[in-house]
Computed example of a mutant assay.
Amino acid sequence: MKFEGVLFFPVTPFAQDGSVDVALLQEHIASRLPFAPGGIFPACGTGEFHALSLAEVGVVVRAAVEVVNGAVPVIAGAGGPLGHALDVARAAAEAGADALLVLPPYLVGAPMDGLVAYIEAIANATALPVIVYHRGNAKFSAAAMVELAANPKVIGFKDGIGDVGLAQEIVTAVRATGREDFQFFNGLLTAELTQGAYRGLGMPLYSSAAFAMAPEIATAYYRAYIAGDEARRVELIEGFYAPLVRLRDETPGFGISLIKAGIRQSGLAVGRVRPPLVDPTAEQEARLAAILARGHELAASHALANA
């Protein structure tokens, strides 16, 4: 499995009665496919994995698989309490997912051998390959990742911690094993802000929550990034991504809440976030609209320049 392009993490739309709105989820994903995402990651962080039931994960993943129809890989989230993670992994496999993104275990701190065993248990639960999410209480050492890379079902590493020294050590150690199919992702919040540095570490791939909200802007950034056009990349960072991050950092959980709000502003009624997350205030939504307007303006100018 080889990823190329922006990695798309769709939101999970909720209907007025609180249920998953399958039709709207499929519309949300289908509307982004023309922008050529490198992979679709439903029921993951941006999709509020933390708030979905086992049955809902199956519904979300199946809906994504149906609308994608083999165009790009579909990678489902799995994590939390081990029993739940195993059930979710099996549900995702039954729904047709191509791989799993293994999120951290629930709350507990664990020694490195335990974290490795957690990943191995989920990898063994299905025939699907898995990507390790290095985040929160799931912080892996280079030696642990070398051990996991000995398993051909472990195909990737996503860094959500931001320790660049450790990230470099892990990339170097895993590459030394000879695994040419192993892939590395920048999974920090609003990864576009740090991707210039992560490319230098040997992590050319990144996840983009902004792609779910504003694919035109995210694609403009990606094109500048791939082309090495630093002037345009920095222009988008200063004009869109940096203001978005400042707004995001005002309230915990806004990495998801703002994305849903922005999608609602675009006309897709994806609903509110589930507790414990909260929606932005009217004043924050107004600032988000202004940030998005500026981002769309910059993206349009880039498109004209490339025409």
Rank of each mutant, 00 (worst) to 15 (best):
K2Y: 10
G5H: 05
V11A: 10
V11F: 03
T12R: 05
G18Q: 12
G18R: 08
A23P: 00
E27T: 15
H28I: 12
I29L: 07
I29Y: 03
S31F: 03
R32C: 14
L33P: 10
F35C: 08
A36M: 05
A36F: 11
P37C: 04
F41K: 00
A43H: 07
C44I: 01
C44E: 09
E48S: 02
A51K: 02
E56C: 07
V59Q: 14
R62K: 14
A63S: 13
V65S: 04
A76V: 06
A78H: 05
G80T: 07
A85F: 06
L86H: 04
D87Q: 15
E94F: 01
G96C: 06
A97P: 00
A99V: 03
A99N: 00
V102H: 00
Y106W: 15
L107S: 11
G109S: 13
P111Y: 12
P111E: 13
M112T: 13
L115S: 06
V116P: 00
A117F: 07
Y118S: 03
I119C: 06
E120A: 13
E120Q: 15
E120N: 08
A121D: 12
A123E: 05
A125C: 09
A125K: 01
T126P: 10
T126G: 10
P129F: 11
V130C: 12
V132G: 01
N137M: 09
A138G: 07
F140W: 05
A143C: 01
E147D: 15
A150P: 00
V154Q: 00
I155M: 07
F157G: 00
K158Y: 10
G162V: 06
D163M: 11
G165C: 04
E169D: 15
T172V: 11
V174P: 02
A176K: 13
F185H: 09
N186S: 11
L189A: 12
A191Y: 09
G196T: 12
A197I: 15
G200P: 03
L201F: 12
M203A: 13
A210G: 06
P215N: 09
A218G: 07
A218R: 01
T219V: 11
Y222K: 03
A224K: 02
I226T: 11
D229F: 11
D229V: 06
V234A: 12
V234C: 01
A242W: 13
V245P: 00
P252Q: 09
F254T: 03
F254N: 13
F254S: 05
G255I: 02
L258D: 02
S266E: 09
L268T: 04
A269V: 07
V270N: 04
L277Y: 14
V278E: 12
V278H: 10
V278K: 13
P280I: 06
T281C: 12
A282C: 07
E285K: 08
L288N: 05
I291T: 02
L292C: 10
L292N: 02
A293Y: 03
R294T: 15
G295E: 04
H302A: 14
H302G: 10
